[in-house]
């Protein structure tokens, strides 16, 4: 499965990730709000979800917890892409079931590498 759902309220972050991952051959679905995230994820059945922490309505961490408690979606790896760079934040993130905790600013190249690692593809 090469589909990835990216949720961030900053349009340029979405644009960057979408461009980078799409070029690498992934199917990218972007969302600017976490409101419809659950229904979209349920529909798209992605292989990976990249989440921002700080979002209006539903925070990334809350969304991640919901995902990890849903038997259908619990298996989907989640990347937390956030500006919260403190150790305690990272610990909280990892405790919530996040597979990779990436702090902004980030390198799209490194992100792609991590995505490939987790998705288990060398050359998509």
């Amino acid at each position: 499965m090469k589909k990835i759902v990216v949720i961030d309220d900053e349009p340029f972050i979405l644009m960057m990730i979408e461009d980078k991952l799409r070029k690498a051959g992934f199917d990218v679905v972007t969302l600017r709000s976490s409101v419809d995230a659950l229904s979209v994820i349920r529909k798209e059945k992605p292989g990976l979800i990249i989440l921002d922490w700080m979002m209006p309505e539903l925070s990334g961490i809350e969304l991640c917890k919901i995902l990890k408690h849903d038997s259908e979606m619990a298996g989907i790896p989640v990347f937390m892409l956030t500006a919260k760079g403190q150790d305690s934040d990272e610990q909280l993130g990892l405790r919530s079931g996040v597979a990779r905790y990436i702090t902004k600013p980030f390198s799209p190249k490194a992100l792609l590498q991590m995505v490939e690692e987790v998705m288990g593809v060398d050359t998509p």
């Binding site: 900053e10 340029f12 972050i13 960057m16 461009d19 980078k20 070029k23 500006a83 919260k84 760079g85 702090t103 902004k104 600013p105 980030f106 390198s107 799209p108 190249k109």
Partner: peptide, 22 residues
Amino acid sequence: SHEFRTPLSAIVGMTEMIIEGD
């Protein structure tokens, strides 16, 4: 540090992508 990270993401990430020829 937190507030600066988001705009820095654009500057760092996008510059990298431009340089990488993405």
